[in-house]
């Protein structure tokens, strides 16, 4: 059971079950816990090789036991996400804790990933359970529906879930090279049906200065 204690600490109550957490993110626990480092994100040999190849590396530990375990990372804001059979796409650096029952993997994101400076691949989380995401400042959850497509700055994007298509928009024109661009040269457009998580802060991206 995931529970936020304040907005920057996650408390997980466990009764013999397990969660997967970012390595080193445990800040306290009571009861009996065991911490086991999972090589290659706990996705087996194939996952390990994929992560090595794609650069979407994730050091994960399995926390198992009885009691309460608290997690936090660099005083980042934590956001809870419930998954009911759908798929969550998130950058591995923004993923704090997932239920052990959720499957994680990697997927190709194409230009969107490149524009965020996060590489061409991203992490997927799938199944039934809860996950905790990290963001710089509390995330704003925006709904994408067929009548309301959404456009997001790559530097502020942290995750999305549901059945959405994403396309990459570039507003680079000759003005960009004259230093008179619109300041938002790269954007990701989401269409379909789902949720997008954005943070009130922008990572440094190649698009940041255009």
């Amino acid at each position: 059971m995931f529970r936020l204690q304040g907005s920057k600490v996650l408390a997980v109550e466990m009764t013999g079950d397990a969660v997967k957490a970012k390595n080193g993110s445990m800040v306290a626990y009571d009861g009996r816990m065991s911490f086991k480092k999972l090589t290659g994100g706990g996705e087996g040999l194939r996952g390990m090789v994929t992560r090595r190849l794609t650069g979407e590396q994730m050091t994960v530990m399995e926390v198992k036991g009885q009691g309460t375990c608290w997690f936090a990372d660099r005083a980042s804001e934590i956001n809870l996400v419930s998954l009911t059979g759908d798929k969550l796409y998130v950058e591995s650096s923004n993923l704090l804790v997932t239920d052990a029952a959720l499957r994680t993997g990697t997927t190709f994101t194409g230009l969107r990933g490149a524009s965020q400076g996060n590489g061409l691949f991203t992490t997927t989380v799938e199944g039934h359970g809860q996950a905790a995401l990290l963001s710089d400042g509390p995330a704003v959850v925006l709904r994408v529906s067929p009548q309301y497509p959404l456009t997001v700055d790559p530097g502020a994007y942290i995750a999305h879930q549901g059945n959405v298509r994403q396309s990459f928009q570039s507003g680079v024109t000759f003005r960009t090279f004259l230093g008179e661009g619109g300041g938002e040269a790269f954007q990701i457009r989401f269409e379909g049906d789902g949720l997008v998580y954005v943070q009130p802060s922008e990572r440094n991206t190649i698009a940041g200065d255009l």
Binding site: L142, L150, T151, D153, G171, G179, G183, V198, Q199, E202
Partner: peptide, 16 residues
Amino acid sequence: GKMIAYYGAIEFNGIG
């Protein structure tokens, strides 16, 4: 660079 997301049709143009 301070826009993080938008709905609708919005265009961003440099002042020049």
